[in-house]
């Protein structure tokens, strides 16, 4: 092994430890008792090993309900984004209509406005619509995203026009062309967006915390934060809850990582 290689592995090792460390600690803490969590020095192997944190979450708290809420919201947002962004991106890349450039820059412009700035107007708007504390508040405003539209548009700009012309000569209309020819080509982008959007929605905290008020409507991250007390925090419970939040994400990423990396690199070129 050359010296450069050794150094590379060392750096990667350090980075892996920094990334994995907190995760492993959380995992271990979720199987510890309250006393063991705050014991010094901290240990990696939970002793005594207990499943009580998990049973507590499932039995005493509406944890499954929160998980369901999170799944429904993230599911709707993900599916909607994957398709609606694709349609918008395609329209901006290919259809000729007056004002398309202006529209595109307006969409890009919205990415430059921090979410925090619009919290109050969005809240007022949604409360006037009567959507506060409902799924609608967390899905409808998030059905599309400027970044997603941009990503698709860049991809579609690179698709040769002759493909659409061939489809036209094959007798396909605009919708058939889009769904049978264009969209299948965008699979890597779709997968990347599915992951981005699912993660964003699943991990989202600010908007759900703002827009939800009854515990039955909480998403996982909001529910989890509710047992951070003012004076003390039951870290063992929080970490068990965190495992519920993390596990699906890890599974999704492992399944889609191939596409994910492809999709990210797609946005880089062209």
């Amino acid at each position: 092994m050359t010296r450069g290689r050794g150094l590379l592995y060392l750096l990667l090792g350090i980075y892996a430890a920094l990334t994995l460390g907190p995760f492993l600690w959380s995992l271990s803490a979720s199987f510890k008792t309250v006393e063991a969590v705050s014991a010094w020095p901290p240990t990696l192997i939970p002793r005594p090993f207990t499943l009580e944190n998990y049973t507590y979450l499932l039995e005493k708290l509406p944890f499954l309900r929160w998980m369901f809420n999170s799944l429904v919201i993230a599911g709707i947002v993900t599916v909607a984004n994957v398709f609606l962004n694709a349609m918008a991106g395609y329209a901006l890349a290919r259809l000729r209509f007056p004002g398309r450039k202006v529209l595109f820059w307006i969409i890009i412009g919205t990415m430059m406005i921090p979410g925090q700035v619009v919290i109050i107007p969005v809240f007022i708007l949604l409360s006037k619509l009567g959507w506060i504390d409902s799924y609608a508040a967390l899905t409808i405003p998030f059905l599309t995203s400027a970044f997603g539209v941009f990503m698709y548009r860049q991809f579609f700009l690179g698709v040769p026009k002759s493909l659409e012309e061939a489809a036209m000569l094959d007798g396909m209309g605009p919708f058939q062309t889009f769904f049978r020819i264009i969209l299948p080509l965008a699979k890597p982008v779709m997968a990347a967006q599915a992951i981005f959007m699912f993660l964003g929605s699943w991990n989202g905290f600010m908007w759900p915390a703002m827009l939800l008020s009854t515990p039955a409507m909480y998403t996982l991250p909001v529910g989890l934060s509710s047992f951070q007390g003012q004076y003390y925090t039951l870290w063992n419970l929080v970490m068990a809850g965190t495992m519920f939040v993390t596990a699906p994400v890890v599974v999704v990423f492992i399944i889609f990582q191939r596409y994910f990396i492809q999709g990210v690199s797609t946005t880089g070129i062209k």
Binding site: P160, S162, L163, E165, A166, A167, M168, L169, D170, G171, M172, I181, P184, L185, K187
Partner: peptide
């Protein structure tokens, strides 16, 4: 007429095959 109704078929320079 729409291309599909003209009774023509076209071969493109870049082949324009559907890659998937």
């Amino acid at each position: 007429l729409h291309p599909k109704d003209r009774g023509v078929a076209m071969v493109f320079q870049d082949y324009a095959l559907y890659p998937h």
